[in-house]
Nucleic acid binder design. Sequence first.
DNA 1: GCCGGTAGCGCG
DNA 2: AAAGCGCGCTACCGGC
Length: 565
Amino acid sequence: MSVRSPSERRVALVVIGGGRYAAVEIDDADEEQSRITLTAAELAGWVRDAEASDSPRWIIRSAREIYSVLLAADVHIARSHDLLLCHAILRDTATVASPLAPSAAWERKEPTDAVPALFDVFDDERGEDPVAEALEQFRSQRRVMSAATDGRLTLLCAAESAGGLIAEEMRVAGLPWNEQVHDRILTETLGTRPMAGGLPSRMVELADQVRTILGDANLHLDSQQKLLRALHRVGVQVESTSKWELAQHEHPVVEPLLAYKKLSRLLSANGWAWLAEWVHDGRFRPVYIPGGVVTGRWASAGGGALQLPRSLRPAVRADQGWTLVVADVAQLEPRMLAAMAADEAMARAAQGRDLYAGVVESGAVGTREEAKYAVLGAMYGATTGDSGRLVPRLRKVYPRAMALVDTAARTGEDGGIVSTWLGRSSPRPSDEWMRLQSEATSADADPAVVALARRRARDWGRFTRNFVVQGTAAEWSLIWLAEIRHRLRQFDETFAAAEASGPFSRMPHLAFFLHDEVILHVPEQHAEEAAAAVQEAAVTATRRLFGNFPIDVPLDLRIAMSADK
DNA sequence: GCCGGTAGCGCG
DNA sequence: AAAGCGCGCTACCGGC
């Protein structure tokens, strides 16, 4: 991903209704220079040619809407400006004096199902002149981006737009998923698959064991209420059926019950039904939603892409003749915190693979475990328990880093807005929250209301505290992803073009992304090259964000047939 | 039978 | 009711 240079060619692709598209050349003043009209059948070919000749930045309403159409015709684009994704950022940013005016027409409607909102494309009623409206929106967005003198919003929008493209590409490519391996794991863990309706054999055994111990042969284990009453009857005085609470008790029922619950979860979330619904032709194709989380993290819809249990990792297997490049960042968030705060002591602790070991060396805490709890507590706002007790020790050793998160928390408690490193801002607290706070400040306020307001203020403070760190980590990851894609495209051109016979047939490609982790699917002979690209991309992402500030962001990087660790 | 709220647990 | 952030999904359960 590169930030636009003045001479860069820009073309807006606009849906103009009746199944037709306008391709509009934009000059350096962001004015329309020329326009041609394309039918749906002509679109892909025209874009392919333009892309091949000088790879313009495509101004699009949304990658979800239009890139899926292009990809279906095996047309890839390098760069875009995604008006829907950037609208949200530029409208909410608190880092410039005049953010973008809100407009319902440029708000992303979240699809609630797994099908992309393709039919938006053919909405003829959208406006008077869709081209003029798109260009006007683009100009407004450009004004806001350039109001940030340091280019941060421009970088953020470029990265967010690249993310929009990558999300669509990853869905088309899919994650290579071996159904036989998945089936074997299920059978080994849950027992033999039931013929119809019933539970697998190991679950049946465990359930019988639990029912025997609880003295109720017909107990329905999946009902918390019935289970809770049965537990009370045998003297297990828990207030909930959650596993952390059950684990505190010593009773013969605990072990088989926890085992049953674990298997039950695997069966219902990622069992044979999931496999049949979500894996086709050896690929799992989740719908990614870039920027779907307030902090800028991606969300997903359908298939639970971001919650795949680690026990199923071995089912992620490269095709014959291919391999996986699997990379993740260790302790990304505290590293981002150290760099944002320019906390050199914390950056020193972050040197090398294990940040927590560095924290121990600094003398703040005695063990790695303590370091972990202290650091997580600092970023999440722990006040009690082991974690809360350890946080003050960090405040002595890393005053700058702690001041950054403490300030973010105080801003939130006061109803203020915080921003990430590149300028994505937290939402305003709700009207209800505001009302409660002002109600609590009146002289004759009910003490219960005051206490509640205080609690809600602290809750929101913990959210804004974490927002700046989680959101900046999301920005690093987004740039990392975009830089990986950029490098794969570069070296792909040199060897794959001649062999290509379909989408991603010979191309190394991104196959999975999970907050601070990527999986690439790569022809074997290019594995080393791809791994190097992932590493270089990380270095570049760090430099893009923090210049020469010395912060290490080391990767766990491996080349393997399966994603299993 | 449909719907929304809640519990619980998977991921980072 | 985990202490301490952000999500999505499934199954229950009560109300209609």
